[in-house]
Design a protein around this nucleic acid. Structure first.
Length: 659
RNA sequence: GGCCCCGUAGCUCAGUGGAUAGAGCAUUUGCCUUCUAAGCAAAUGGCCCCUGGUUCGAGUCCAGGCGGGGUCACCA
């Protein structure tokens, strides 16, 4: 039983005995006392006035006396207004420290036999990973680690979007313009190689599109539809207009001539919006790409072979990026194998009345009573839509792993989709339906605005990783702390520091919030950053190495002399702050798991590191005033190091021994 | 327009309904003869978007506005 539980139950008992009232546990739960007051934990007595006809301070006084008498760990108390501040005896804190100092696993719960599946990353296979994926990956990985620490058996999966029109664009571009080039022959990282052909396709398509805009057909369409577009209260009215006079944005592409000068603006707007329709209805390249998709669906051997080859390149590239980020997966699901799933579930839904069929044969679910809408589950031609395969995939995964919880780490633009998906699975009566959770996270913005792959403003994941490491290298040069180490070790340290900066910068923000990613700030090594926390750890390691050199005892505290258990001196405020911070670690993990929120752990680690730096600056460890104090502080160091290492590990951040 | 999310210092972000709302960055100023100064301390900086409501108590909960974003396909 923890001290907070102890205080809580004692408070409930006290209120019962003193006033004959049973209060809810919540009202008896102690909070951490604010720094400006003396005490470790605080009970708020205002709510008790409801049944006690006394002023809050008087109640606090009586409750305090009762608790001191009945809970030996509580030494004394003070009352400020209605706040009862309890002071826990140093012996308790020293015992607590003894308990955890040597425990590498402090904070981790024993296995609870429950299983959770976490899906994250889930990229398309037509281009390399970018900053958005990085946020996703860090959240997914960190949640996995947090759930493991909370005692769960975790299965990490992703669904690879390996089919569809996008990859066909890359395939087609390679086939038409690639001239047999390979990642090896061009010396390009293989996922980037494929991505380059995707970009090439878009460029060629753009050229084709502008050429076409000169045609009479285009002119007719423009004149017939431009008014309609204008009258619709559509997004295009507010979108920035393509500047037809600015040739630089179109590179070498010749600009199609609008009919009249005054129509330039309308012309630009219209054909920006019309692009998709053009691709589907008029484009030669579009037709070829769609034909390729049809051949793929028909299982044409040559197409399949090309598809395998290009996806193979992409996977090799992804794997490299995952390795740099230090993440992994237990199982990959591929859309090419799941996109036809889910139809049997529709039968089930139709049979139990959860779904209905329209006259044209399409299948729907009515979710209006769940404040959602009618949702199509199967097209009238009998083919699947996106959600159909998600239904099937969920079922497949449950059969594969039997996880009682399934977490989907996916951007918040898909909030509605997941509401519909989960609600639909509930109506099907699937046994896992109540354990589904969409870990929805906000988009990542750049100082220059939103990331748009079409406008080439995305931040590439590999570039970013290289950048933060090189920044760490520059900073390290100036410090000169690690120059004496072997080259490989130096590189390992720089990698850890750079990645810590990047990862912490992203993971410290609450997932739900849209975040601003300033590349300059992401490589900061000072302040509220990953390296700041690593530095606390490194300082500890350095002290512990020196302590070992001197032969100071650190860890065999069980046989500690009695003066340590019955110390002459009191715990210093800086020490107390650290211990009480350590005490909160399991709670931080618990909260993070319950809320699916790694930022809780990130902020905890920062607070702990901050408290350590203050302690380190204010108090001498190796030259402490007594052996007792020295040993106590070494214990404290050991415990802080363990917790920092564990905590950062939960964020996917490694700790260097020196920096 | 319907629904969902966000709004806290100049900027980036914390803040289980509790006491005088906190960090970092930026600006200014101190602290390396001492265990790694990627550190510490201090100063400056706030109608917690607005208006009501619930409560002994609201940045936090509720309602209504305002601002920003997302989403409302027989797309994925």
């Amino acid at each position: 039983m923890t001290i907070t539980d102890l205080i809580q139950s004692a408070t409930i008992a006290a209120i019962q005995e003193l006033y004959g009232e049973t209060i809810p546990a919540e009202q008896a739960s102690p909070t951490v006392t604010r720094k400006e007051f003396e005490g470790d934990f605080t009970i708020v007595t205002f709510p008790f006035t409801r049944f006690v006809k006394k002023a809050p301070p008087a109640i606090a006084q009586e409750l305090g006396e009762f608790l001191v008498k009945n809970v030996p760990q509580i030494n004394r108390f003070n009352v400020v207004q209605g706040f009862l501040n309890l002071v826990i005896g140093d012996v308790f804190w020293r015992d607590f420290l003894l308990e955890i100092a040597d425990n590498q696993d402090f904070g981790r719960q024993p296995k609870n036999g429950r299983r959770v599946m976490i899906e994250y990353c889930s990229p398309n296979t037509n281009k390399p990973l970018h900053l958005g994926h990085v946020r996703n990956i860090l959240l997914g990985w960190s949640c996995s680690k947090i759930y493991e620490a909370a005692g769960y058996d975790v299965v990490k999966v992703q669904i690879v979007n390996d089919r569809g029109i996008a990859i066909c664009k890359s395939m087609l571009a390679w086939q038409k313009f690639g001239e047999g080039a390979t990642p090896e022959s061009t010396g390009t990282k293989s996922d980037h190689f494929v991505g380059n052909f995707y970009v090439l396709f878009e460029q060629k398509f753009q050229v084709e599109y502008f050429e076409w805009q000169k045609s009479q057909v285009a002119r007719d369409i423009f004149e017939n539809r431009v008014e309609i577009i204008k009258n619709e209260k559509s997004k295009i009215e507010v979108e920035p207009v393509m500047d037809l006079n600015d040739t630089s944005t179109l590179s070498s592409i010749e600009i199609a001539n609008p009919v009249f000068d005054s129509d330039k603006e309308k012309w630009g707007k219209f054909f920006k919006v019309y692009k998709n329709t053009y691709f589907n209805e008029h484009s030669q390249l579009g037709r070829e790409a769609r034909e390729m998709l049809l051949r793929w669906e028909a299982g044409d051997p040559a197409t399949i072979e090309l598809w395998r080859k290009m996806n193979g390149w992409v996977y090799a590239g992804f794997e490299e990026t995952y390795r740099s980020l230090g993440v992994s997966f237990d199982r990959f699901y591929y859309e090419s194998q799941t996109y036809l799933l889910g139809k049997d579930l529709l039968e089930q839904g139709l049979a139990n009345g959860a779904f209905y069929k329209k006259d044209d044969g399409s299948v729907w679910v009515d979710l209006t009573d769940a404040k959602l809408d009618h949702k199509l589950l199967l097209r009238s031609d009998g083919t699947s839509v996106y959600i159909t395969q998600d239904l099937g995939t969920a079922q497949m995964r449950y059969r594969d792993f039997g996880a009682e919880r399934m977490v989907y780490v996916v951007g918040d633009e898909q909030n509605y989709h997941f509401q519909v998906l989960f609600e639909t699975l509930k109506r099907l009566g699937e046994p896992y339906a109540d354990g589904l959770f969409h870990l929805s996270y906000g988009m990542v913005d750049l100082p220059t605005g939103k990331m748009k792959s079409r406008e080439g403003t995305v931040v590439d994941a590999d570039d970013l990783i290289a950048e933060v490491i090189s920044e760490a290298r520059e900073a390290s040069k100036e410090r000169g702390e690690i120059v004496g180490l072997p080259k490989a070790e130096q590189e390992d340290i720089l990698r850890k520091i750079g990645l810590a900066a990047l990862k912490f910068h992203i993971i410290k923000v609450h997932p739900k919030k849209r975040m601003m990613f300033d590349p300059k700030e992401s490589v900061d090594l000072q302040g509220q950053t990953g390296p700041h926390i690593q530095y606390a750890y490194v300082r500890i390691k350095s002290v512990l190495r020196k302590a070992a050199d001197f032969g100071f005892r650190i860890s065999d505290f069980d046989s500690a002399p009695s003066e340590i258990r019955n110390p002459k001196s009191e715990i210093e405020p800086q020490e107390k702050e650290l211990i009480s911070q350590l005490y909160r670690f399991p709670e931080a993990i618990e909260t993070a798991a319950a809320e699916y929120d790694p930022s809780t752990v990130a902020n905890y680690c920062y607070d702990l590191a901050k408290a350590f730096h203050r302690f380190f600056t204010d108090l001498s460890i190796l030259k402490a005033e007594s052996e007792e104090a020295r040993t106590f502080r070494l214990q404290l160091c050991q415990a802080v190091a363990n917790v920092l290492k564990t905590g950062m590990d939960l964020l996917g951040i490694e700790m260097p021994e020196r920096m």
